[in-house]
Nucleic acid binder design. Sequence first.
DNA 1: TAGATTGTTAATCGATTAACAATC
DNA 2: TAGATTGTTAATCGATTAACAATC
Lengths: 203, 203
Amino acid sequence: MALVRNDIKRLLQYKLCLLRFKELGVSTIYSHNLGEVAGVTAVQVRKDFSAYGIKGKKRGGYNIDNLLASLNHIFGESQKNIIIIGMGNIGRALSQYNERFIKKNLHIVAGFDIDPSKQNKSYGIPIFPPEKITEIIKKDNVTTAIIAVPFQVAQEVCNILIASGIKGILNFAPVILRVPEKIIIDNINLSNKLEGIIYNIEE
Amino acid sequence: MALVRNDIKRLLQYKLCLLRFKELGVSTIYSHNLGEVAGVTAVQVRKDFSAYGIKGKKRGGYNIDNLLASLNHIFGESQKNIIIIGMGNIGRALSQYNERFIKKNLHIVAGFDIDPSKQNKSYGIPIFPPEKITEIIKKDNVTTAIIAVPFQVAQEVCNILIASGIKGILNFAPVILRVPEKIIIDNINLSNKLEGIIYNIEE
DNA sequence: TAGATTGTTAATCGATTAACAATC
DNA sequence: TAGATTGTTAATCGATTAACAATC
C-alpha cells in the first residue's frame, strides 16, 4: 500500500490556485502570494518548485504560464480513464463530476452496479453489471478506480480490480483495504473526517 | 487554520476496526492484529494507545470493549450537530449518510440551498434557505459544517459560517478556504485526489 | 523456564523552518 | 545603492522506527 506524498498534494494545490490566478488575468506571482492562497509558507513554495527544477526570477517572481506548463508536464497531459464501482449516493454524485474532471483530462468512462435498474445512462456515464469490470478496464486502459460500494463488499471489489490491472484506488468505503505494496490508495472516511474535526474543536 | 492531527486520524481508524472485530465476536486483540487491519505498524498502535494512557496486558493484548470505552471517552459521547451547505450532488449524497452517522452521534440536522425547489424534506433532512443559516446554528448548537457549494461562493459561505459560530469545516469546494487560526478545516478536493493517485501510479 | 507481547527509551529519518547568500 | 525576492544550506522539529526491558 502506497500513499500519495505530501509534496505531490501541494503541487496539485498550487496548480489549482495558479489556474484561478490565471482566470483573473494575473501573469506573474511571488512565492508568498501563492503560499498564502495555498495555505503554506513562501519558503515551502520555493522549495517545492526548486525540488522539481522549476525556476523563478530573483526579484521578479514566477511566470504563471511557465509554472502551469511545468506542472502539467509533471502530471502528464494524456487522458486518464477512471471507473466508479457502486452507483449509490456517492457514486452517482461523483459521476456528475465528469464534466469538471474532463478539463483535467480525467475521464470517468463507466460505472458499475449490481442493481439492474441502475444499468442505464441517466447518470451521465454508461453503467454496467460487475461482470463487465475486467472487460472495460482492459478495453479502455483504465488504471484508476473509485470504490463507492458498501463496506462489506469493498475488499472483494478491490481484489477484482487489482486482478484486472487497476493500479490506483480512491476508496469511499469505510474500511482500510488490503492491497499489494505497489498499489496506490487513498481512503476517504467521511465520518472519521467529521469526528476528527469535532475532536479538534473540543480539545 | 488548523488541521486534524495524524494521531487522531489513526485513533479513529482503530475505533472503526475495533467495531468490526467486535461485530465478529472477537473480545481481545494484539497490537499487530490491529496494526495490520488499520494499515500501521504494531509499535505505532502501542505508542498511540500509550500516549493516551490506554493500557493493555503484557502477553494478553488489549480488551476490545475497554479499548472502545477509552476511545469513546476520548472522542466524547454527546450528540454532535452538523449542517450541510449546498444541496447539489455531493450535498444530497451526504444527507443520505445521516442514518449511518447517527450511530456515531453525528447528526446532520439541516441542509441549506438557494434553490427554493430544493427546500423540501425529500433528502431526509430539512432544507432551508441560506438566510436561516445563523438561526439554525444557534438554535441547534451546531459547531461543524460541510461546505458543498460551487467554489465561487465557498469563501463567502465560509465567512458566514464562522461569523455564526461554526468552529470546524469539512470543505468539498475546490478551494483552500481562508479561516482564522482557531478554525479546524479539512479540504477534500476530489480531482486533486485522483490526479495525485495517477501521478504516483505513473512514477 | 521459554516465549510472546506490551511499553518505553534511544536512534533515525524526513519534513519543515531559519538563516542567509545570490541577484535582479 | 537599497530593497525585494529567489534559492540553497544548515538547524530544528516532529514523527517513525529500532532496540530492548518488563512481565505475563
